[in-house]
Computed example of a mutant assay.
Amino acid sequence: MRLCRHRLWDEADAHRALPAEALRRLAARVAESEQRHGGEIRVCVEASLPLSYLWRRASARERAVTLFGKLRVWDTEQNNGVLIYLLLAEHAIEIVADRGLNQRVSAEQWHTVIGSLREALQAGRFEDGLVAAIGQVEQLLAHQFPTNGAPPRNELPNAVVVL
């Protein structure tokens, strides 16, 4: 059943959920957010898992952790990158934070971000939900990694990754 569900979703579905204009606005929101803290935020939306993940019954979390590495979110100077990952075929939301931030933020705080995003996605408000999630992650990063007047560094691309 899982294989069928994933084969029904493709990249076009992700682009229907988040059209090009929404992707541009989200990238701008990430860039704006990164002016207020010393961290890095990446957003990735994937329609379905690759077959290799489905064959071995890998979870959305495992895929998110793999993409955290592939997108080099782990490779920030202060180990404070955050990946917000959506897997549309399973309605899964994962947040993967690097060790510099994750040790300072409780599981409850991450669950709050995920819960808010889940409500918006269930209502079909993908862009609004991601904007709010970026804002919540921004608050966590600003608290833990304030800029202290230093010019922000942009270590990673701001564009949303759609797979």
Rank of each mutant, 00 (worst) to 15 (best):
R5C: 08
G115N: 12
S116G: 13
A14P: 00
M1N: 11
V82L: 01
G115V: 08
G129E: 10
E11K: 00
S48Y: 01
H6R: 08
E21K: 07
L54E: 08
G38R: 14
R61D: 14
L121F: 14
I95S: 04
R36V: 14
W74F: 07
R25K: 03
Q103A: 09
A120T: 09
L140K: 03
W55N: 04
L163E: 14
Q136D: 06
G69I: 03
S33L: 09
I114Y: 02
P50C: 09
W110T: 03
L54M: 13
G81Q: 13
E94V: 15
V161I: 11
A47C: 09
A123N: 10
A31L: 15
A20G: 02
L121T: 10
V162H: 05
S106E: 06
A47W: 04
L130G: 04
H6Q: 09
H15P: 03
L18T: 08
P152G: 10
R125L: 14
D98M: 05
A132Q: 15
L117F: 03
H143C: 09
Y53C: 03
R42N: 04
G38L: 14
S52V: 06
I134A: 07
W9N: 11
R24Q: 12
G81E: 12
R42M: 14
A28V: 04
E155G: 03
S52Q: 11
L18F: 07
R63H: 00
L83D: 00
E155C: 07
R61E: 15
C4S: 08
L141M: 07
E34F: 12
R36L: 14
N79V: 12
V162L: 06
L71R: 10
H91P: 06
R57P: 01
E127I: 06
C44V: 06
A17H: 06
L8K: 11
V160N: 07
V43Q: 04
Q144R: 15
A31Q: 12
Q144I: 05
L8F: 08
F126G: 07
D128H: 11
R16V: 01
K70T: 11
G149H: 09
L54Y: 03
G149S: 11
E138V: 07
I41N: 06
L26H: 08
R153P: 01
E138R: 09
V131D: 09
A27V: 01
V96P: 00
V30P: 01
R72T: 12
V96G: 02
D98A: 12
G81W: 09
G81S: 13
Q109G: 01
V73G: 09
G39N: 10
S116A: 07
E34D: 13
T66N: 02
N148G: 07
A120K: 06
V105G: 05
I114M: 02
V105I: 10
L23E: 15
H15M: 00
A142F: 05
S52Y: 10
A28W: 11
L26T: 08
E46V: 11
V137H: 04
L83Y: 05
R63L: 02
G149M: 13
P157F: 11
L83H: 05
L163W: 05
E77T: 08
R25N: 06
E90A: 00
Q78K: 12
L163S: 09
R2D: 06
N80L: 13
V96F: 11
Q139L: 14
E40V: 02
Q35A: 15
A97T: 08
R24P: 00
H111T: 10
E62Q: 15
R42S: 05
V43I: 14
A150W: 01
P19V: 13
V73K: 04
R36G: 12
